[in-house]
Design a protein around this nucleic acid. Sequence first.
DNA 1: GATGAATGAGCGTTCATTCAT
DNA 2: AATGAATGAACGCTCATTCAT
Lengths: 207, 207, 207, 207
Amino acid sequence: MGKIDDKKKQKKAALLKAAYQLYTVKGIDNTSVSEIAETANMAKGTFYLYFKDKYEVRDSLVASQANMVFERASHQLDYLLSEQTPDSAEDLIILLIDTVIDQLSNSPNLLRFISKNLSWGVFSNLQIADLDNRNCMDIFDALLEESGKEYRQKELMIFMIVELVNATCYNVILNHVPVGLDELKPELYESIRNILYQFEIKEAIPV
Amino acid sequence: MGKIDDKKKQKKAALLKAAYQLYTVKGIDNTSVSEIAETANMAKGTFYLYFKDKYEVRDSLVASQANMVFERASHQLDYLLSEQTPDSAEDLIILLIDTVIDQLSNSPNLLRFISKNLSWGVFSNLQIADLDNRNCMDIFDALLEESGKEYRQKELMIFMIVELVNATCYNVILNHVPVGLDELKPELYESIRNILYQFEIKEAIPV
Amino acid sequence: MGKIDDKKKQKKAALLKAAYQLYTVKGIDNTSVSEIAETANMAKGTFYLYFKDKYEVRDSLVASQANMVFERASHQLDYLLSEQTPDSAEDLIILLIDTVIDQLSNSPNLLRFISKNLSWGVFSNLQIADLDNRNCMDIFDALLEESGKEYRQKELMIFMIVELVNATCYNVILNHVPVGLDELKPELYESIRNILYQFEIKEAIPV
Amino acid sequence: MGKIDDKKKQKKAALLKAAYQLYTVKGIDNTSVSEIAETANMAKGTFYLYFKDKYEVRDSLVASQANMVFERASHQLDYLLSEQTPDSAEDLIILLIDTVIDQLSNSPNLLRFISKNLSWGVFSNLQIADLDNRNCMDIFDALLEESGKEYRQKELMIFMIVELVNATCYNVILNHVPVGLDELKPELYESIRNILYQFEIKEAIPV
DNA sequence: GATGAATGAGCGTTCATTCAT
DNA sequence: AATGAATGAACGCTCATTCAT
């Protein structure tokens, strides 16, 4: 019985893989169900045994792809931390963001796909399988916790950081305007530090 | 005959209006030329007398809509300045952005449409008819000039500000996550001030 | 399943038949794919499962129809030869042409269709399935070989004969001008004999 | 009033000229009324003041173009006769055909257009304006008369000659198969002489 | 007479979806 | 479970024709 389930999972995976290739290259609107099935070496009708339509496939893909990015980023972060100690929580967060950006800059299609389809609502609740199903917010939270500092309106703060990163990287990586990624990064990270500082709760100085 | 030209302008305007309604509600990919023509109370063929295809309509709309937003913002800014003097160039820029945001928050469809279709390349070169065809960058530049301060990498700075505003407002206005617009604004404006400060060239303090 | 393949062949045959009817009556330019599908009692989309467009159907038809004519002519010739011996190679060729003409005169639509669409290039290379895939030229060649006579510029000779037959029969059979087929035939055959004689290599008379 | 009639004739002529250019290059089916009017520097609606549809234009063109060919051929023949005397009526006819062929070989579009659209019925009754509105048959007749010889079934004879010339030249000039025009001509003219001889009424030899 | 804006039927083609096998 | 033939609605687009100006 597990064998059959395996086969089904393989079919589903093949469809997802095929769809991802086509979506990122041609866009979802120019991709037909026929093409997805054909690319996955299946008959057209088989597609409908696994997905309602091509939009359900997209939703499934967005979640899994974003998942992978964060899993890889998390592993990369662990690796970096094993080698060197960062100076601060801010450094940690920027390290995390940096590894994410590097992944996206190596795969423009992935960036395009995620940026177009990943809303804040989905993102903030994204469960990361490898990390005990903690979601993205939890991960940021944990990093902030370790700093010993207090922040107000944490979700808004992370939201602003994430949107700033996403929006600027989208243009810079995909269109190379107005500057290159190397030029963007230092300014972007400086701005992130500023945002973090902006939301930091400073202890009243005791008289 | 001016009469005929008038009629043609009306037809074109009707098509643009119809297309705008449909694009904002259903997206351009799910809007057909038939629908646009029907909504504009015309025969399908008439559409093709005025536009090559639905994408030409979109491009025409993006430019004119963004144009309108900036013209209104500019007028609003002039009006506000006639009533009160801002304290600084930073205040001016934030005032400008604030009027833009208010417009967009009053018309979510407009926001959705512009956000989806206005790339940085188009935006930075957008000619504003009412302002002697100066483009958006020129307007920002002029505001910065008046401050008496010097900034490095102006284009990158403006790019980061615009993208931050656009991305955060898109989510907040359209999806009301993670906070409301009233909550976002003060933090957003504080971040903008920080970005401006970040790029400001500080004079070396003479010993 | 042979069953499914059978059904597909039937569908294709039905489309070919429908297209042939429409092409011969209205011409290919005035025949739409919709009509072909409708005439064949199919949905429009089904057409595109079997043919790229209406021109592919035409090419398929031209080949098969011309094929049929020549196969029937060949069989008819065999039959006639079993009953009576022709006096000469010229007689054989004229017999062959006569059986072709008779077929065409019995089916004006076939004549119209073949004449309009069968160029010399296609004709001269037409493979006749029943005759070991020999092409039309081979068949004429074989008949000429048997005569024991030698001909120069055989291809040009056959070309002139075929074109003369085709052009005159087209008018006579379809428009009955300037004479009837019965009146044309003897003169046409006499002309063919003359053309054959014209290209015959006569042995120099030894002194 | 003649002025107005002149203008009308000019418009009609412009439309015919435009249509001829388009028909010969793109074929009548791929030529739209819009294009004809546009090429003739007129509004689309004006076309319909002069012709019922594009097919009426074609019919008008076929007649006038064929007319021109024969007028030119006739003039050319007169000129040649003024320089040298032909040996016989057969020579005359072949000279006439030769001048026609040369015209057609210089203008493949004209050849394609005439061949496709000129049926024997139209041809045989074609009135040649310059030659006292005698038709093509009359011209051939006159040439044959001068020979002093008698021919039976003159119309059939001319029909066979014309069709043989037309069909062979069409392929040779437009497709260069199976031989070139230079190779075709001597054999074609020899065949024409044979056809003329075939229809010649030979006097019974008095005992 | 001349115009050209407007029409809308019709084209070729695609494709999501169904369903008999 | 898997197939893929069949469907037919809908698409983008063209164009002959009309008619108010």
